[in-house]
Design a protein around this nucleic acid. Structure first.
Lengths: 224, 224
DNA sequence: ACCTGAACACCGTTCAAGT
DNA sequence: ACCTGAACACCGTTCAAGT
């Protein structure tokens, strides 16, 4: 008999890298990096733990694939014909929310940065900066810096979020940090003393957006 | 007999949290996060693995302490009477170099962000921004954003560095990434196509400094 | 108070054996 | 070609027992 063409392109019950990554993301979301084990994953997929290795090389690759998946989802649907600054804000917020919803991806980002989605980010931010009149000569550096800022700041935020996620609420955690800051030697930390009280008040999302705006303003102002 | 005063405040051969953290940093520097094990640490300190638990609660706390140590070293000796912008650059570079030399600390930073050293960073950056005339009303937000930018961007950089550290050299790795980028669909990625060639050329440290400058310019320009 | 090291309950990964 | 699951070589952490 002839070699059977792949008539049913994906049997629902067959294992595939996509199904594995999807299940991995669910486990990571539910319990963080430590909750993802090959044994647990195999059980969830009703297979043997070794079967997973047929589709992914190892845990690092699985984590990288999961991170890429989560970021790529966001990057694909970037708004088309908005004002450049708004488009930048929208894309940045997409990354922010993705990492906020999947904090483990933020950690992964600082381990293996070369996302498959990186070209999309470069394309999106770079073309908008160009539309803002940033000259060719500094376009690459400006875009790199902006991409780095967005990924970095979003990752930092997710790290903060991890703190309140574990039981205690945000206000309580930040409140006690503020108290610690207020107890520091006022002679050595005059500035920290003055601003400590503002710590529990601020809105993380708002502050992230402010940061992006500041950065874009810096780029636009610096061009010459 | 009366309770003996602690006459020799630290016996050279006694275990202490400092000695443990110091040894942990050496192991992390030598082989990354996976190279740090309690068994290896115990062997290096010529003790039992359980002894370490008398001084640190668990591996997470040990990693946090090691990270704090590495960042705190840098933050302590910030220049005193430089120009505000230069002082900011110097402090930012200190963080950059610390994370560049200890990439595992960058990963840790995105896991537990509330460094003991954080007040120092806030104090340093905040007071310099104040000296630049940033008004009180936006001082806290601006400082938070700057600290976040520095930690985030430095972490991103360390993540990149990890790639070339493992055998292959920087130019080769970035060169092949640039080739991949050049193979992307030019219709969908016109910008990426144009700048791909610049990828292997750029200086990471320089680009980080540029980013900090852009950010400060953004803050100073935005104040109103 | 501090240290020892065996024991416990896990891991990621491999691989002969199956279909 | 793809899956199974026992086996291997590790882990972090605990804890009775020592000094």
């Amino acid at each position: 008999m002839a070699t059977r063409p792949q008539q049913s392109p994906r049997r629902t019950d067959a294992l595939s890298k996509e199904r594995i990554v999807e299940a991995a993301i669910e486990m990571l979301d539910a319990g963080g990096e430590k909750a993802l084990t090959f044994r647990g994953l195999a059980a969830r997929l009703a297979t043997g733990s070794g079967a997973i290795y047929w589709h992914v090389a190892n845990k690092d690759e699985l984590l990288a694939a999961a991170t890429d998946d989560v970021i790529a989802r966001v990057v694909t649907d970037v708004a088309g014909d908005a004002e450049p600054r708004d488009a930048i804000r929208a894309m940045a917020l997409g990354v922010f929310d993705a990492i906020d919803m999947h904090p483990w991806a933020g950690v992964q980002l600082s381990r293996r940065p070369w996302l498959v989605a990186l070209p999309q980010l470069f394309e999106g931010f770079g073309s908008q900066l160009e539309a803002l009149g940033v000259p060719e000569r500094v376009l690459f550096d400006s875009t790199s810096a902006l991409v780095g800022h967005v990924l970095g700041a979003a990752g930092q935020n997710a790290a903060n979020g991890r703190l309140y996620a574990e039981g205690t609420d945000r206000a309580a955690v930040l409140g006690s940090v503020a108290e610690e800051w207020a107890r520091l030697d006022p002679a050595r930390f005059p500035f920290v003393h003055r601003v400590a009280a503002q710590l529990p008040e601020h809105d993380d999302r708002e502050q992230f957006l402010t940061g992006v705006d500041l950065f874009v303003t810096g780029i636009v102002t610096t061009r010459a």
